[in-house]
Design a protein around this nucleic acid. Sequence first.
DNA 1: GTAGGGTTAG
Length: 604
Amino acid sequence: MLTPNVANLGLQFSCSMNCLTRICPLITLRLLACQSRGSMNWLYRNIGRAIHGYVVKVGRDVRDDVSVNSALVFMYPRFGDLDPAGSIFWSMPERNVVAWNTMISVYAQTGNIKETWGLFNQMLVEGFEANEITLSCMANSSNELLQGMMIHGLVIKIGLIEDEIIGASLIDMYARLNSLVDAQKLFDVKPRSEMGSWNSLILGYAKNGYPREALNLFYRLRDHRNLCPNSISFLGALNACAALGAVKEGKVIHDYFVNSGFKVDRIIGTSLIDMYSKCGCVDTARDIFEGMKDKDLVAWSAMISGHGVNGEVKEAIKLFDRMRKNYHLKPDNVIFTSILSACSHSGMLEEGWFYFNEMKRVYGLEPKQEQYACIVDLLGRAGKLDESLDFIKEMPIEPDVSVWGALLGACRIHNNMKLGIYAAEKLFELETKDAGYYVLLSNLYAAIGRWNDVKKVRELMKSRGVQKPPGRSWVDLNGSIHEFFVGDKSHPQSDKIYMKLDELGEKMKEMGYIPDTNLVLHDVDDEVKEEKLTSHSERLAIAFALINTKHGEPIRVTKNLRVCADCHRTTKLISKITGRKIIVRDARRFHHFEGGKCSCADYW
DNA sequence: GTAGGGTTAG
């Protein structure tokens, strides 16, 4: 029985027309129940549509009911159908705050920031008063600090600053806008008993580049006299471990979760898949994934990208095909992004194009910036730079920073100065604050010795307040983290580390290795450049790990920036010389080095 | 009835 009808939904009533309104709450409840995100999604979608059909037919009282309509507005976007939500909302004969909130939250969740703010303004103009849920949604869809502060001000003015929902949303907002100090301040003045605030701040730190702080806060909560972590707190902690690549710490937290009596549900399961994948333990992630009873799109998504990011493209594609064949799940933009990026990082040009076309043809999904960037990347890495530019020119939407950035990255790989500089100009017109792009352009200029332009890029960064974080690499040795900066000599074992690097350097030179000094960003002579290169943070970390682990044991290193081409070559050689498996996770992906080769096949 | 916690490229 695949097509539900009203009879089997329990909505057949024998009541006269004037008591029709009585069934509205029941219909509303049924509609709201249609929001499973699991593998039964398709069935609920059919049920929801059937109920909607019934609502339209049964009579004006039901058709015009505010709750019923709000529930419909709420339901459709859960199935990815945004249009019906908008048209239902606008054709409602009367609306209340809940109806407005529902529509605002739909726009906020789908990232339509302009529409969200427009709706919010109109709601106020029409004389409705914002409540805690409205303002929580608005905090959510503030993507600039000024907007956020305005909402914060409004919260104070309306007298809702004590509200727990709002407190958590504001913390979340400040963290997302990279204003962790403000987030911490809000947390500090809140009554500490509010779990919402703890969780918001733990997640805020974890997701916004401060994983260590997230874990510290999580441990404070663990040791708290009156409170203990709930499953959301664990999400934050696992997220932080994923960001750190700290698999041992992650495993301890995983065990702690289970021993505390929590059940690994779909959400924690997905988070575990993500954590283990991002720590390079794809097998463990896979075990958890296979053990999950009801996998939804997000779980599949996490596992597919887990394979992709670890260089296992074939596995990623196999899994994607399995998902489409065996389940009634409709892939979304996120899954396609993972698949496309996996293809581009393995140079699978044809496959990438195939999936890009399939997105629209089979699933009716409109490609977004992310997917366009993937294709630009795909063409660019394969050396088809002109085709890549043509592709950008034909895009139906205005290319954003990520698209131009992908072209710039490809130009650097293939040393195409002219096009690279063009891409960079386009990129910087968009006023990005992402330091990585400035470094790319700077590298381009440095490679051809245009030091004046290198200086100009630096000045541009300064004037725009862009800061390049210093390169850091770290190793998790028996649960404690050892961290290294470029040229770092502060570690107690520093002498041994540099001796190890010298020893490896000699062996590498015997194998014909010549350092690529183009990659050092300073206007200095070659000897000094070489010295800087040999002390890149990941090399220090690798040498440290070699000294402190048993022979044959794999080495895991995490780096905050992307690994440079020279370190990549070097690590390949070190894996051959020492016979060790070296797993490096950089800011973007994994490199599994073994026997002189890397899983990324030199595409990254 | 409406919010908040899992997945995404460059």
